[in-house]
Amino acid sequence: MFRIISLLFCALFISTSSLQAQFFLPPLSPKASLTQMVGNTIIKVEYSRAIARGRTIFGGLIPYDKPWQTSASEVIISFDEPVIIDKQRLPAGKYALITIPGEKEWTIIIHDANHGILEYGKSEIRIQTCVPVTKAGRHYEALSFDFDISDNNARLYISWTDVQVSFPISTGINEQITTYIDSIISAPLMGDGHEYFKPINYLLFNQQQPDKALALIARFQEVDKGEYPYRMLMRAYTQLGQKDKALKAADKGIEAVKREYAHQPERISSLLKSYEEQRAMITAGTTNGQKSW
């Protein structure tokens, strides 16, 4: 009997020890990462999400006017292409992000990632800028980083409890797009209409440089005699506010539909209906040139 009890005790001990060896308490500040493509640039933020747990955070746990690693551990931000922050160019690479919180504004510091927070003053500071403090739209129990993107640029938000700060990140891709489009306009005529379709559609969809969209459409029409370029022409003239020219483009598009799909009555009927709807919207001024079929 004693031997049986001993064996049972040993089995229980081994089972308990195995459970202890496999069980891990969850971290108090879970690690997080945030990756966002902005234009052609991939931006990644790696940090630990500290949790408020009823504590006074700013002016309490996080003192004002002192460097903060902006996380429960170091924050690493990386870019695979050069970016511009506060009119300062930052090469592609991996960096540490440090902040100095204040009641009304924060200092944002981006520096070489091979130094910790205690040594950041000794490292090369790449970017330093001040941003205002705003009220967050909701309560953030956990420290949060988040991106908002617009027009190939981004704004990085840092939020915790009811406090929020942000700073813009520019990719510079719009300048590259302009250079690329200028090169297509000035280059010899290309036989593949798709090479014109892509940049035209990009400009019209983003409502950028409709005058250059017109120049590209003119080239597109030299290699594509169908009705589709007239849809683009309508959109470009509408974005330029030239209603009469947009309506003339619609009329020519209708003529092209009848020629191109002469043996497809159902296709003609469907496209003519779409053109008439678009004409009505242009006449009424209820379109901004965004519609595409």
Rank of each mutant, 00 (worst) to 15 (best):
I4S: 13
I5D: 07
S6N: 09
F9A: 15
F9Q: 10
A11Y: 10
I14P: 07
S15I: 10
S15W: 11
L19K: 06
Q20G: 06
L28K: 15
S29A: 15
A32T: 15
Q36M: 14
M37G: 00
G39M: 04
V45G: 08
R49L: 08
I51N: 11
R53K: 13
G60H: 02
Y64W: 12
P67T: 02
I76L: 13
P82H: 05
I85P: 04
I85N: 03
Q88K: 14
P91I: 00
I98A: 15
I98F: 14
P101F: 14
P101G: 11
E103Y: 00
T107W: 03
I109D: 05
H111W: 02
D112P: 00
A113T: 05
G116V: 06
G116N: 12
L118D: 15
K122E: 14
S123G: 08
R126V: 15
R126Q: 14
I127K: 10
C130N: 13
V131T: 11
P132F: 10
G137Y: 04
Y140V: 01
E141C: 09
A142Y: 03
F145M: 02
D146Y: 14
D146S: 14
F147N: 05
I149L: 10
I149E: 06
N152S: 10
A154M: 10
Y157A: 09
W160R: 04
W160C: 08
T161R: 05
V163Q: 12
V165K: 02
F167Q: 11
F167C: 11
F167N: 08
I169W: 05
S170N: 12
I173L: 10
E175W: 04
D182E: 14
S183T: 13
A187C: 02
A187N: 03
D192W: 10
G193Y: 13
Y196K: 04
I200R: 02
L204M: 03
N206V: 06
N206C: 05
Q208D: 06
D211M: 09
L214R: 08
I217V: 08
F220T: 04
K225H: 13
G226D: 09
R231I: 08
A236D: 07
Y237T: 02
L247N: 02
A249C: 00
E255R: 04
E255Q: 13
H263I: 14
Q264V: 08
I268K: 09
I268S: 07
L272V: 09
K273P: 01
Y275D: 12
M281W: 06
I282C: 01
I282Q: 03
T283F: 00
G285S: 12
T286Q: 02
Q290V: 13
K291R: 15
